[in-house]
């Protein structure tokens, strides 16, 4: 799919350079759509979804002042 995004980006840029602005815009819209889909697919995990469980926060002190 990434090759497809490169093709669309190339077509958009080449069309823009050659003066076909509407065509360039159409290719760019398709490119952005495919790009977002590819990005979401790349970071999605069947086990953890979009979360990042390897990042865990913790308090440096057992309790904050004023808490029991």
């Amino acid at each position: 799919m990434i090759t497809g995004i490169f093709i669309l980006m190339f077509l958009a840029t080449a069309s823009g350079w050659l003066g076909w602005r509407r065509l360039a815009g159409a290719f760019m819209v398709a490119c952005i759509g495919l790009y977002v889909g590819e990005f979401l697919w790349e970071v999605w995990s069947p086990t953890t979804g979009f979360s990042m469980p390897w990042l865990q926060g913790g308090l440096a002190v057992p309790s904050l002042p004023g808490e029991a």
Partner: peptide, 20 residues
């Protein structure tokens, strides 16, 4: 990597606006 390629594409996207 795939995300590295997406980052390259984003840089080309910035150039697209400037080229226009």
């Amino acid at each position: 990597c795939p995300l590295c390629l997406l980052e390259r594409l984003a840089m080309f996207g910035v150039c697209f606006g400037i080229i226009l």
